[in-house]
Every structure is written in structure tokens, then in C-alpha cells.
Amino acid sequence: MSNRITSLFNIQYPIIQAGMIWCSGWKLAAAVSAAGGLGIIGAGSMYPEVLREHIQKIKKATDKPFAVNVPLLYPNVEEIMQILVAEGVKIVFTSAGNPAAWTSFLKAENITVVHVVANTKFALKAEASGVDAIVAEGFEAGGHNGREETTTMCLIPMIADTVKIPVIAAGGIASGRSMLAAMALGADGVQIGSAFAVAEESSAHPSFKQRIIGAAEGDTKLRMQKLVPVRLLKNSFESAVAAAEAEGADAETLKVLLGRARAKSGMFEGNLEEGELEIGQVSALLKEIKPAAAILNEIWQGFLTEKDRISQFNY
């Protein structure tokens, strides 16, 4: 398949692995890229020198294109940007911040830039800043989320009708069926997080992966809207946040409750009760831990199968 996204990234399939903190190390990114998608190293959970190590390792593991995701509000962002340039990274996904702050710097280094948004207002701002594409992430997505709580089904056509640059759909996509739906809504490609979080190559803790594939409908909740909205699996920490919010907790109270290294404790170290377990609603559809290449291939083959099925409808 060839379209604006495959051409932009020089990849075989318009399937992008999300840059998930504590899940997206070089092994997962390399596996996705080698299988024909675009793998992403998630810099949000890495010290600068750790990120450098992951970039060097993925370059040895595959000659296929890969990207790095950089949350712009995180510390050390200047040092991270210098590392990206020094290590010859060609594609950067930015999130959690103003794309205007770094897009021109990255573009001056001939780096392709993609920014993650959750509403049309910021999609237009990202386009105006000069990014090459946009990830439009709906309310279903895991991790940090938009305050508007706009679902993917509504968000994708709104943004596709608003901007001229390619749109990558994210949130609730883990199968060929949902990929086809996103493309029908106007997306040029899809970004997938939760399904790759349970890949064999994901750096998520094995206990966290088992918790994900055991999740049922309704087992995730959007919490901490007064701080930074984040979708979490239910556990003791999520219950404590829900109780605090029910009592009217402000942002400072929630920040104290969140504490330090809560996400690392849950997703990377496997503390399933007191840790922060970020995952999407689509976790209820995930039932097996498999290699990343198998996950990508199943999504692509499912996409082709559903496209053929729909093309045979006789109206």
C-alpha cells in the first residue's frame, strides 16, 4: 500500500507503534519497524543518555525507519533534542506541549516532525507550526488524554476536514476492522499503543501485560482531569484518585497523591495495585501476548479482509 503516510515515513504499511512510556524501548520499536510499520522509541521514560543508548541499539538492530517520541513538557528536553540530532534520528513525534517550540529546530535538521493532538484547535496550531503530520488521539486512548473527551469516531473526521497535512488516527485501534474504520473517517494511517504494549518485545512488566489481557469492558477510567487527564486500569491507586476527585481534590492534591515514579512502579516494575497502569479502552479486546510482527501482520491482514468484505456489499 502506498499513501501519504507510507511515503512520508518510507514504510510498507501505514501502521505506527505509539511511543508509550515504560513500554516502548528499542526492542519493540525495532520489531515493528522490521515488520513494515514505524516503530517508536518512547523518550518520556528515559534519561537522555538512556535514550542515546536505545537509539544506537535500534540502528544496529534494523535498517528500517524508526522514530522517537518526545513529550515536550518533560525535563531535559533541550538535551534530548541535541541527542536526536547527534544520533541522526530522522523522524520525531512530539506530544504534551507546544509544537512551535521545537518544530522549526527539528525541521532545520531535516527531521520529519509529527505532533499528537486531541482537538481541532491544536491540530491547526500544529499545522501552522510546520509539522509534517498529526496524530489525532481520541478519548479511548491509554495514557495522557484530551480534556475534551472527544472519541476517535468524532475526532478523526473533524481534524481530517480541518487540516491539509496527513492525519494519523489513534485511540481504540487494535485490529484491522478498527484500522479500516479510521481510514474511512479520513485518516491516512493509524497509531497503535495498547496492542503493542502486550507484544513480546514490549518493555512493560510481564505482570502488567497479563493484567492488560485480563482486562474487561469498563476496567479503564479517565482520571486526574484537573492535573493531566490519564486513562488508567482500575487498581488501588486508581480507586484512591477516584475518591480524591469525588471529594473535590485540586491539582496540587492530585500531584501529591501521584507522587514520583508511580508509572514506572506500575508498568515497568509490576506493582499492579499501587502503580499507575496506563492503557486504553481497547485492552478489553486484547487476549494474547504475541510477537510485534504477528500483531502488525494480523492488523494488516484484518484490514484487507474487512475492506474486501465491505466492497462486496450489494446495495
Rank of each mutant, 00 (worst) to 15 (best):
E245Q: 13
M158C: 10
S2L: 11
R223G: 08
L296T: 01
K290M: 15
L254N: 05
E201Q: 12
L28D: 07
N10Y: 07
E273D: 15
L28R: 06
T151E: 07
L155I: 08
M158F: 04
A96N: 05
V70A: 11
I299A: 03
S33L: 11
G193T: 05
S45Y: 01
G142Q: 05
A204L: 08
A174S: 14
S7R: 14
I165L: 12
L51R: 00
C23T: 08
A174I: 09
V282Q: 00
F313T: 04
F313K: 13
A184T: 06
F303M: 12
P291N: 10
V190M: 05
W102L: 13
K121R: 14
E137C: 11
L304N: 12
G176R: 01
T305E: 15
N98A: 13
E276W: 14
K164L: 06
K60Y: 10
G266L: 02
V198Q: 01
V68M: 03
I91H: 04
N76E: 14
A292N: 09
L304A: 09
F66S: 06
K64T: 14
A123R: 04
A294N: 11
S311H: 11
S129F: 00
V85W: 03
E148T: 09
F105P: 01
F208E: 06
Y315D: 13
K226C: 06
N314A: 13
M1K: 08
L257Q: 02
T220R: 02
A216Y: 13
S311Y: 04
Q17N: 07
P166I: 05
A34N: 13
C154H: 01
S265L: 15
S2H: 12
V163E: 03
R4W: 12
A136K: 00
A197L: 13
A141V: 12
P166Y: 12
I310G: 02
T152Q: 06
E269S: 12
V113C: 01
A30D: 09
F208Q: 04
A199W: 03
L222H: 08
F268N: 12
V228A: 05
G266W: 01
Q210K: 13
W300V: 14
E247P: 07
F66K: 06
